[in-house]
Design a protein around this nucleic acid. Structure first.
Length: 398
RNA sequence: GCGCAGGUGGCGGAGUGGUCAAUCGCAAUUGGCUGUAAACCAAUCGCCCUAUGGGCUACGGGGGUUCAAAUCCCUCCCUGCGCA
């Protein structure tokens, strides 16, 4: 019996849908935003606060938790849910993203999203010179950023660790490529990701965990349409419990890339869009068939003073907020807006007070979680297009 | 009053004849962050302009030496410490 059940409640417009993913730790009402808690914590906020915010799912990271404190310890502690004190559903990312972030992206300040304005530089990928991640067809060796020790990840090892962690939804071990990788390399990496996907599913199904943890396959292919389609078809054929879309995108056409993929994925399985979380991108993702999202943006931005408002993102450090005695957003229901002014937040940030991170994170997470809930409601009420236009036009004034 | 030390950009503090509008740190200003090596990173930070260049004013005040001074000399003012 599969670990999760997905029910679509309402479809349209376009590929959008609203539904429910039933997991061993309760339902996820979709579309939904998974809050990122890489190291078994959503930075600066407690799970009690996350509950108040209305967050439904957490996304933790296999690689980071393997390095510290180790999946064995977490297993001993009773699994991630107990360890982090989160009763709701949890996802764990496989460590595939770290192939990119600690490999090709290492120290180069490159993001998985590039803009068309940006110069495309096809990088020769030298596997041996990759700073901390070395890729072979069998697996990836990482140099721990904590102590420099070598750690070797294979698809089987990633799944084994994720079994120890015990999340409701786990991801196949993939190779997340740089947006600057040329097509040749994308193709090579894609084939590897597909082989790894098959190994992940084989290993997963050989364990009893398959009954309590759902395994999602990851579609790659970078910005190449043919590779994306090929990947969607290939990953679909392997029979995962759900799917995730990973890898790099061009900022301008995330929506169309996602649509292409989703048109080639089974309709009756949930689809997660990995690492995407700008408001506009979430709207586009939903419209083009994605059910769940995760992103570090709300929390990282929060810690760096970039706060979401319906009229766009603001930088709380800006001089004009130093004496602004209004809340961030008058009609926001979050704890921060209900109780504090912009001047106070500004003061906390300038004073480098730790509470700044907490209050800002509470607000940003609330903002995105609430936005996605509103998206869901708009689909159920047949007014998604209007809601999208209204929200996006206000958030990104031209 | 005498002796010693010192007065540099918002602050701290380098520089001790030219490569100095002046290292660096802090502060400030603005921008960026999309499966978290991120409570981080970047740019700007004397004034003016036709601005990857040009002009002007600047290193306590004044005067001088020199092709050239934040840097050397004289003088005045101020600060700290010590002695009367």
């Amino acid at each position: 019996m599969p670990a999760i059940k997905f029910t679509i409640e309402k479809r349209g417009p376009a590929l959008a849908r609203a539904g429910v993913i039933d997991t061993p730790h309760g339902p996820i009402l979709t579309p939904a935003f998974a809050v990122v808690g890489t190291k078994a914590t959503v930075k600066a906020i407690t799970t009690a606060e996350l509950s108040d915010i209305g967050a439904q799912i957490l996304l933790c990271n296999t690689y980071h938790l393997h390095l510290r404190p180790s999946s064995e310890l977490i297993k001993k502690a009773g699994g991630l849910h107990k360890f982090v004190n989160w009763v709701g559903p949890i996802m764990t990312d496989s460590g595939g993203f770290q192939v990119f972030s600690l490999g090709a992206a290492m120290g180069k300040g490159i993001s998985k999203i590039t803009s068309h304005d940006e110069e495309f530089r096809e990088e020769p990928i030298d596997k041996d010179l990759a700073p901390v991640a070395k890729i072979s067809d069998d697996g990836v060796s990482f140099k721990s950023y904590i102590d420099g020790a070598e750690h070797y990840f294979t698809p089987e090892r990633s799944i084994e660790i994720q079994h120890n962690l015990g999340a409701d939804i786990i991801f196949a071990f993939d190779e997340c490529t740089s947006p600057h990788a040329g097509k040749e390399y994308q193709k090579e990496a894609l084939e590897r990701t597909h082989k790894w996907a098959a190994r992940c599913i084989e290993y997963h199904k050989s364990k009893p965990n398959a009954d309590t943890q759902a395994l999602f396959g990851i579609v790659q292919g970078g910005k190449y349409e043919d590779l994306r389609i090929e990947s969607a078809k290939e990953i679909s054929s392997l029979g995962f419990d759900g799917y995730a879309i990973g890898g790099s995108f061009s900022k301008e056409d995330i929506g169309s890339a996602v649509r292409l993929v989703n048109e080639n994925l089974p309709e009756d399985k949930p689809r997660h869009l990995l690492g995407i979380g700008e408001p506009r991108d979430i709207f586009d993702g939903v419209e083009n068939g994605c059910d769940t999202f995760d992103c570090v943006a709300p929390t990282r931005n929060a810690r760096n003073g970039a706060l979401y408002t319906k009229d766009g993102r603001i930088n709380i450090y800006n001089t004009k907020y130093r004496e602004d005695l209004e809340p961030l957003e008058k009609d926001c229901g979050c704890y921060t807006c209900q109780n504090f002014t912009k001047a106070y937040l500004s003061h906390l940030f300038y004073s480098k007070e730790i509470l700044a991170n907490t209050l800002a994170s509470i607000h940003n997470v609330y903002f995105i979680v609430q936005m996605v809930k509103d998206i869901r409601a708009s689909i159920l009420e047949d007014r998604f297009p209007q809601f999208k236009k209204e929200f996006v036009d206000r958030y990104y004034p031209s």
